[in-house]
């Protein structure tokens, strides 16, 4: 099988990424394609370790390859290629993670709103704890215990937290989830 010079370069030595880039800068499309393929093989494990889903890895890898393409004039072929490449990869990864977490924050429930909703009655006012205690027992044990302590025994979320060894926030979140489940079941 006949292989191109560019493919031989990569197969022979890793160091030849520099040579491939030098050729690419002169407009050698085959060398450039080989370099970008080698680059994506290098980066995939690096990204996979840092991101959860394969689709995220693919998206970010594409973004990094485009960045390499845009910034290739800042590489002269005389210094190691990998530090240059990883500097770009880390920069794009940071950007991606920043955007990802900012997005998560935007979609996260505002805790103040959550607290307000906890004071609201999730069932009709005429509905007492006793009337739905059967449904409460069907909830997971932790949620059922929290509701029993809060609505049958009259403890506050803080006191329940102290009794169960959970944090106050965790108690409120668990109670909120239990209310949601109860509401859905009772509305059926």
């Amino acid at each position: 099988m006949v292989t191109s010079n560019a493919e031989n370069l990569v197969a022979d030595h890793d160091d030849n990424l520099e040579a491939l880039m030098r050729q690419s800068l002169t407009g050698d499309q085959r060398a450039y394609a080989t370099l970008l393929q080698a680059t994506s093989r290098l980066l995939r494990p690096f990204l996979s370790k840092r991101l959860y889903s394969a689709s995220e890895v693919d998206d970010l890898l594409q973004e990094i390859l485009i960045s390499v393409h845009k910034a290739r004039h800042t590489y002269d072929g005389n210094r190691p290629y990998k530090p240059w490449l990883y500097a770009i990869a880390k920069f794009r990864l940071q950007d991606h993670l920043r955007a990802h977490y900012a997005d998560q924050l935007r979609h996260a429930e505002d805790f103040d709103e959550l607290e307000e909703s906890l004071h609201e009655a999730v069932t009709e006012p005429v509905m007492s704890y006793e009337s739905i205690s059967g449904e409460v027992q069907k909830l997971p044990e932790k949620q059922a215990t929290i509701l029993r302590l809060m609505h049958e025994d009259g403890y506050t979320a803080k006191e329940v937290a102290a009794k169960t060894g959970m944090t106050e926030s965790a108690v409120k979140v668990a109670a909120h989830r239990a209310y949601k489940v109860l509401r859905e079941r009772l509305e059926r």
């Binding site: 690419s24 800068l25 407009g27 394609a33 393929q37 390859l65 485009i66 393409h69 004039h73 002269d76």
Partner: peptide
């Protein structure tokens, strides 16, 4: 993407 970028690879003057 690699194929597309390679097609666009004109000679570049290094910075």
């Amino acid at each position: 993407l690699v194929a597309q970028l390679a097609r666009e690879a004109a000679p570049v003057q290094p910075a």
